[in-house]
Every structure is written in structure tokens, then in C-alpha cells.
């Protein structure tokens, strides 16, 4: 029933992955430099959708669903609501390029973050998929929790207390919004 993760040890990037990464990167850059806020929101939604597809390619459908629903769907709608109060820039420029100083800071930030990439394990055969804990979950999740999706088994059973905390965090966010707005109901 539970097949071990039989991903080949992957150190190169396939054409599909390269295309997806280029798409996501392009969307991110467009979202950063465009002046029209509606275009920025659309670019950000496309970015989230691209990331969701990347999660599917990396065989993480649970994360992909969350990214697509929250990142590309709900967040986009909330942003669309908020820009209704803004006005379009009147001048002709369509791009807002960063200044020299912020560009240099940006470059330094990218270099620092990029320097950590070689330290990541290759896809497949990493300590995560081959580790003792992961293998224990894969082997025992079905008999111990009676659910087939190991992600759900970890979230709701093995790490159930953590998930309760997360659910309460979402609940608290709603309560906090009501407190800040000094209202008793949402609608």
C-alpha cells in the first residue's frame, strides 16, 4: 500500500523544471518592477500558480493545493479588494526600476541566499526521505492511524498537538481582526 519514495537521485534540472523556474522568476521580477498595481497582483497570482505547479513536480500535492488555493486564489482576491481605493499612476512610465543603492542591496541579498543553495540535499535520497523518522512514518502510518495519506497522518495524529496550535493561530487571527476593527461580527 505504502510505496517508498522511489525518486531517483536528481542533481540536474529537467527542461520542465527549468521552464517553470524561469516562469516563476519572471513573474516575481514583473511583480517587483511593474507600476500598475493590478498588473502586479496578476503577476503575483501567476507566480503562486507557477510555484504550485513546481510543488506538484516535486511530488508535494498537499503543499501545491495550499499554494494554489491560498496563494493564487484567496490572496489575489483580497489584494483586488484592497486596490479599489488606490489610483493609477498618472505618468507614462510603466516600470519602477530600483535605485542603485537598493539594487546593490538586492544583489547582495540574492547572493547571500543563493550561497545556501549548494548546501541543500539533492532531490531524492536526501536525509529527509531516507531518514529513520520518515521511514518510520511511511511504514507505520497506515496501521497506527488508519489513514492512507501519510501527510494527514503526520499532521492530524503524530503532530496533532502542533496542528491544534495552527488551527488556534488561524482562529486568533480572526479574533484579532475583529478586535482591531472594534466589531463583533465579520459580515
Amino acid at each position: 500500500m505504502i510505496e517508498p519514495l522511489a525518486l531517483p537521485l536528481q542533481t540536474t534540472v529537467s527542461a520542465l523544471e527549468a521552464a517553470l523556474l524561469a516562469f516563476v522568476l519572471g513573474c516575481a521580477v514583473i511583480a517587483a518592477v511593474l507600476r500598475d498595481v493590478l498588473g502586479v497582483i496578476i503577476a503575483a497570482a501567476a507566480y503562486s500558480l507557477g510555484v504550485a505547479v513546481i510543488w506538484v513536480v516535486l511530488r508535494a500535492p498537499d503543499v501545491a493545493l495550499t499554494e494554489a488555493a491560498v496563494g493564487a486564489g484567496v490572496t489575489t482576491l483580497l489584494f483586488l479588494l484592497t486596490i479599489a481605493k488606490t489610483v493609477n499612476p498618472t505618468d507614462e512610465r510603466s516600470l519602477e526600476l530600483p535605485s542603485v543603492g537598493s539594487g546593490a542591496a538586492l544583489l547582495a541579498f540574492v547572493l547571500v541566499l543563493g550561497s545556501t543553495v549548494p548546501a541543500m540535499p539533492a532531490i531524492g535520497g536526501s536525509p529527509v526521505t531516507d531518514g529513520e523518522v520518515s521511514q518510520y512514518y511511511l511504514e507505520h502510518a497506515h496501521e497506527q492511524t488508519e489513514v492512507d495519506n501519510v501527510v494527514t497522518a503526520v499532521l492530524a495524529a503524530y503532530r496533532g498537538f502542533d496542528t491544534l496550535g495552527e488551527a488556534v493561530v488561524v482562529f486568533s487571527a480572526g479574533v484579532a481582526v475583529l478586535v482591531v476593527l472594534q466589531r463583533e461580527v465579520f459580515v
Binding site: 482562529f171 480572526g174 459580515v187
Partner: peptide, 23 residues
């Protein structure tokens, strides 16, 4: 586990729609 998932779903549905209407 199914029941807990439904509980989480109820929280997320209400918070998302609530935030939307609050905004």
C-alpha cells in the same frame, strides 16, 4: 482524523470569508 479535518475546514472557511467581508 476526519472529524478534526472538518473542524479545521470550518475554521478556515469562516476566517477566509470573514477577512474578505472585513476588508
Amino acid at each position: 482524523i476526519e472529524l478534526i479535518e472538518l473542524g479545521i475546514g470550518a475554521i478556515v472557511v469562516s476566517i477566509i470569508t470573514g477577512l474578505f467581508f472585513a476588508i
